[in-house]
Write a protein that binds this DNA or RNA. Structure first.
Lengths: 253, 253
DNA sequence: CGCTCTTATTGACCTAAATCAAGACATTGC
DNA sequence: GCAATGTCTTGATTTAGGTCAATAAGAGCG
């Protein structure tokens, strides 16, 4: 028994069992035993500091990565050298799903602050699927979910005004934070104004002006990167309709 | 022997084996035997005419659909009732991938011309995966590929000028046609100007003006929906850089 | 503390693309 | 044939958001 215990302790620890982000990452929904197996396959590369990259567009794709702590932005680069930010990744979010089809990463993943990730080699994923078939559906889920999120972005960039874009962005961020147990009312932005602008298809000046305007109108309180949502209903009205609901609210107010 | 032959003939025909689009759809890469099994699970709902829908945003998701002939557009609808076209689907393309995560369709799929599809129930897909495990990777591939395409759209909508958007759109359409054995030089557009405009985040007048301009500049020949690419190099220069390559070409010319 | 560097704000002005408005083709049905 | 209708083109004008430029406000550091 003691020997067995020693053996156990000398094995790699079951990180994932105690990881607060396992609720969102690929391991979500696995049984305890499966999580232990999963955990054994996870590699932890050195954390990256702000501005450092985990992988770049064009790198060969060998493994998924799940954010453990910190925050990551992904962006594609056009032939002209311009960047377009595609998404922000919070703890539990899965990086690298785009690489499956072509075998190479199609975007660059860069840390916004000191960030550590959990790597799962694609080959190990395939093996794990045999032991834990539900993992297979979990990945499909994740891909499909990411796809829906990107389709919302297409709607934003294609049809929405700058006001609507920022309002939607903040509301999404707020629920993302809430889902991770943080305050939904006060958001500490991990990204710069310039990142937000790029993500929303705007320029930094426009974003800055919008923050100021929303503050004057009493919708937000803004202290650099600390954003307080003072009037969520109003923010939702701006986000969703730009006119109808908003006017109704105006009449009531 | 004869009895057996009769039995064979009385079974549903192996559609997929002779389908020219099987080269692009979910069945791609399966062995002959697997294709036959796959084919047996396929349902063919009645074709839809122009403007009719296969499914709508919010409908419950039960099956994938692959375009057999014709062309489909997909769009999401905002709370304000505005549409944003997300993609166009040619023969072989897979519809409904967005529904996996939530169990409901997240966009509406509408025929652009008389269109027939091949349906594969999600349950049947799961069963097929047991007999043909490669199908599982094929679906991941398709999802990942679609994702990459959507990321390119984000770059277009976020960073590109109207000129660049239309040029990229036409080039993509051209290679899509070429991949399906049609002419890469002359494209017969299945969608209206208004659909193109919506897809590219522009208004119809802008698209119309661009077509006219490209025609005057000798890049395209335009006869309503028949578009000829007269100067592909120039079109690529417009699509990719808007300036540098373009100016180089100008100097050479 | 003052110096530099990065990030953010604010104002004045400009432009790409939207909006508004009027026709011009095609296509369909009567 | 000719209304009627949907699709597309073209011109005149407006505007949301971009560009350019100056300033401010932190953050890190010797």
């Amino acid at each position: 028994m003691l020997v067995k215990n020693n053996e156990w302790f000398s094995q790699p620890k079951n990180h994932c069992a105690n990881c607060p982000s396992a609720r969102y990452c690929l391991a979500h929904g696995l049984s305890d035993g499966e999580v232990a197996q999963f955990s054994r396959k996870i590699k932890h590369p050195r954390p990256r500091h702000k501005g450092e990259k985990f992988f770049m567009m064009g790198d060969s794709f060998n493994s998924f990565a799940m954010v453990h702590s910190g925050c990551v932005k992904s962006y594609v680069t056009s032939r002209g050298g311009e960047h377009q930010i595609i998404g922000f990744y919070m703890p539990g979010d899965i990086l690298g799903l785009d690489g499956i089809a072509s075998g190479e990463h199609r975007y660059t993943a860069e840390a916004l602050e000191t960030t550590s990730i959990c790597e799962l080699a694609f080959r190990d994923y395939e093996d794990l699927c045999n032991c834990a078939p539900s993992l297979q559906w979990r990945l499909l889920d994740a891909l499909s979910q990411k796809m829906v999120a990107e389709q919302k972005m297409l709607l934003m960039l294609g049809k929405m005004t700058s006001e609507q874009r920022l309002a939607n962005f903040l509301l999404d961020l707020s629920s993302c934070m809430a889902a991770r147990g943080m305050s939904a009312q006060t958001i500490s932005l991990p990204m710069s104004r310039s990142d937000i602008a790029n993500y929303l298809g705007l320029v930094i000046e426009t974003v800055s002006r919008l923050f100021s305007r929303f503050q004057v109108e009493g919708v937000l309180t803004v202290q650099r990167r600390i954003i307080g949502i003072s009037d969520r209903t109003r923010l939702q009205a701006i986000a969703y309709n730009n006119c109808e609901d908003y006017c109704e609210l105006d009449r009531v107010a």
